[in-house]
């Protein structure tokens, strides 16, 4: 990223914990060449590098914000380890997919497809939420930010405000979601 240059690992971690999204871009750019070389050497092509690297830095982002996170190596080693695992996982999925592919053709639709359709409805409902609620719930469920960080990012008075606002937003979303489902579908 322009203007950031080489940051110390701890600085990057601190900024991730503060919710500085520019760190994602920084990690991406710093590790692009390494991940690209690795993927190309391991039966991959350039088209998947972007996906693998994006997933890797997002995984780092999520992990760093977990309460028990402790970095025991260099950050670049950690990022590369995640990228490698993701790529091996992808390769595994691709080989499995080849085997299952023919069976799918015979069976037609599956339960998984139905589940994805249901999930896409909820995703749509989440996207239609008001911006503050969406960001609040995203920061809590995805990013794993503490209430203190969320309060700072969303300009709330304190952690308690975040806690109660979070419940209100969730209740509102849940009501919308439950309105789209039968209770039995959820059991």
């Amino acid at each position: 990223m322009f203007g950031i240059g080489n940051l110390q690992d701890q600085t990057i971690l601190d900024r991730i914990k503060d919710g500085d999204e520019q760190m994602l871009v920084h990690l991406y750019k710093q590790h692009y060449t390494m991940v690209k070389n690795f993927v190309l050497k391991n039966s991959g092509d350039e088209t998947v590098v972007d996906d693998i690297l994006q997933d890797s830095v997002i995984a780092v982002w999520k992990n760093v914000n977990k309460p028990n996170f402790l970095l025991q190596s260099k950050l670049s080693t950690y990022v590369m380890a995640i990228a490698k695992n993701l790529w091996y996982k992808e390769l595994k999925k691709r080989s499995k997919f080849k085997l299952v592919d023919e069976t799918n053709h015979l069976n037609g639709g599956s339960e998984e497809m139905n589940l994805n359709m249901d999930q896409s409805i909820i995703v749509q409902l989440v996207q239609n939420m008001d911006e503050t609620c969406k960001r609040l719930l995203s920061y809590f469920y995805f990013d794993g930010f503490s209430n203190k960080v969320i309060a700072k990012k969303l300009n709330f008075a304190n952690s308690d405000t975040v806690k109660s606002k979070k419940y209100q937003c969730f209740k509102k979303l849940q009501a919308t979601v439950l309105g789209s489902y039968k209770k039995e579908d959820l059991i």
């Binding site: 909820i122 409902l125 989440v126 996207q127 969406k134 995203s138 969730f170 849940q174």
Partner: peptide, 14 residues
């Protein structure tokens, strides 16, 4: 169940 489903959807969006 619903809380889990909603949390997953939120994660996908984010």
């Amino acid at each position: 169940k619903s809380q889990k489903e909603i949390a997953e959807a939120i994660e996908i969006v984010r």
